[in-house]
């Protein structure tokens, strides 16, 4: 329980850091940290396969893609960076406040919200579910990737002059 609370607190801090920091690389590091913490939480919730996916794809692969893209961009000047820092703080100062208020509300309403969750024993292996029982969702996954490819082509490919 104590470890879960520490992980959740770390998750929030990393999330806020990701949004507030002015340097994109730091933002990516923050996001990777969020995914890493989520992976540990998923692992602790007895879903090792989902945790491995989260860690390898969200914390690993996506971070590499982000850093690669950022390496193609120009760095901001120190003055502009300072301006951006103030802008961001002005824009998102309320995020930690909202989180603190939400935390207080959750603790206050704990007796109401703390209803017992039914436990459904999963007898099926995840791989069996994915490959044998959910063909339609696999088709959906392929389509999401296709839509993503079309999105990159449409939004990022410059037309030939």
């Amino acid at each position: 329980m104590a470890l879960n609370l520490i992980l959740l607190a770390l998750l929030l801090v990393a999330g806020i850091w990701t949004v507030l920091t002015t340097r994109l690389v730091r933002s990516v590091v923050g996001l990777a940290l969020v995914s890493a913490v989520v992976s540990i939480l998923i692992f602790r919730l007895n879903s090792p396969l989902a945790a491995a996916f989260e860690l390898s794809v969200c914390a690993g692969l996506i971070s590499v893609i982000f850093v690669t893209t950022i390496s193609f961009t120009q760095r901001l000047t120190p003055e502009r960076l300072e301006e951006r820092r103030k802008e961001r703080l002005g824009k998102y100062w309320y995020l930690p406040v909202i989180l603190i208020i939400a935390g207080i509300l959750l603790i206050a309403f704990k007796p109401i919200l703390d209803f017992p969750l039914p436990r459904v024993p999963s007898e099926q292996d995840t791989r069996n579910i994915i490959w044998h029982m959910r063909h339609v969702d696999l088709l959906g996954q392929i389509l999401v990737i296709l839509a993503g490819v079309f999105g990159v082509v449409i939004l990022f490919k410059e037309p030939k002059k």
């Binding site: 959910r134 339609v136 969702d137 999401v144 839509a147």
Partner: peptide, 11 residues
């Protein structure tokens, strides 16, 4: 599955 295909339409 409903959720999956709603998301595909949305993307």
């Amino acid at each position: 599955s409903l959720y999956v295909f709603i998301e595909i339409t949305a993307v």
